[in-house]
């Protein structure tokens, strides 16, 4: 556990919060939802890090944390009377595989094919994990909505 609470972890928690806040403003998220949207980003990263730490699988980490984020966003949507997208779109930002995409391009240019494939694989795994997390929870939520006869805007 000693290497769980590292300085990097805390730096990343703080920057994921700030980064999500900035993205929420870029996406024109209403000021009164900003704390929830930013918290969503913070939790997303905290779960991603924890699952990655204990299982070593970035796919599983991305999948589980996005599933949580989607559920959290649906919860916020209900509480705050706003579409779930308002929280989901900024909330998933911290685990978007921007760095893997960068290294994929860079190693391709440098003809380091082994590293290129590793980062491409990581980017795809995380991308599919994110999509899987959103889809699985969305399907459950929409099934529940149908069962209750609720519409998207209620």
């Amino acid at each position: 556990m000693n290497d769980f609470f590292t300085l990097t972890f805390f730096t990343r928690l703080l920057t994921s919060l700030l980064g999500t806040l900035a993205f929420a403003v870029l996406f024109r998220c209403r000021a009164r939802h900003l704390p929830y949207a930013s918290a969503c980003g913070l939790f997303t990263y905290a779960i991603y890090y924890t699952v990655d730490y204990f299982t070593g699988s970035i796919f599983l980490a991305a999948f589980l944390c996005t599933a949580f984020t989607t559920a959290f966003a649906e919860g916020c949507a209900r509480l705050r009377h706003a579409p779930a997208l308002v929280f989901l779109v900024p909330g998933t930002i911290p685990i978007v595989p921007g760095s893997d995409l960068y290294y994929t391009m860079r190693y391709l240019l440098q003809s380091k094919y082994e590293s290129f494939f590793i980062h491409l694989q990581n980017a795809l795994l995380v991308g599919i994990g994110i999509a899987g997390g959103i889809v699985s929870v969305s399907l459950i939520v929409s099934a529940w909505r149908k069962y209750k006869g609720l519409h998207l805007h209620h």
């Binding site: 980064g19 998933t92 978007v96 921007g98 995409l101 960068y102 991308g127 994110i130 999509a131 959103i134």
Partner: peptide, 16 residues
């Protein structure tokens, strides 16, 4: 900067 441009969330919602 790539994070500003990358369509990560769009990809997720597209698959959904």
């Amino acid at each position: 900067t790539i994070m500003l441009l990358v369509p990560g969330v769009a990809f997720g919602t597209a698959l959904r």
